[in-house]
Amino acid sequence: MSRLSHINSRGEASMVDVTDKAVTQRSAMAEGYICMSDATLQMISRGEHAKGDVFAVARIAGIQAAKQTASLIPLCHPLMLSKVQVDFDLQPQHGRVRISSLCKLAGQTGVEMEALTAVSVAALTLFDMCKAVDPAMCIEGIRVLDKQGGKSGHWQAEQLA
Rank of each mutant, 00 (worst) to 15 (best):
L90H: 09
V144P: 01
V111I: 08
K104W: 01
L116R: 06
D128L: 05
A123M: 07
M137P: 05
E114I: 06
I142S: 03
C76H: 12
S120G: 13
S100L: 03
L124S: 02
E114H: 08
M113S: 04
L124E: 00
L145P: 01
C138V: 14
L145M: 11
V119E: 06
A115M: 09
Q85N: 04
A118N: 13
I139R: 05
V97P: 00
R98F: 03
Q93S: 13
E114W: 10
V133M: 15
P78S: 10
L79I: 15
M80K: 08
H77A: 15
D134C: 15
L90A: 11
M137Q: 15
M129K: 02
V84F: 14
T125Y: 01
G95M: 08
D134F: 15
S120N: 14
L116E: 04
P78Y: 13
A118E: 13
D87M: 08
P78G: 07
V119T: 12
S100M: 06
T117G: 07
S101V: 02
H77T: 15
V121A: 05
I139P: 00
C103T: 12
K131D: 15
R143Y: 01
G107T: 11
D128S: 04
M137A: 15
A106S: 11
V111W: 06
L145Y: 06
A106H: 12
A136M: 14
R96T: 00
A106N: 11
R98H: 05
R98I: 01
R143I: 00
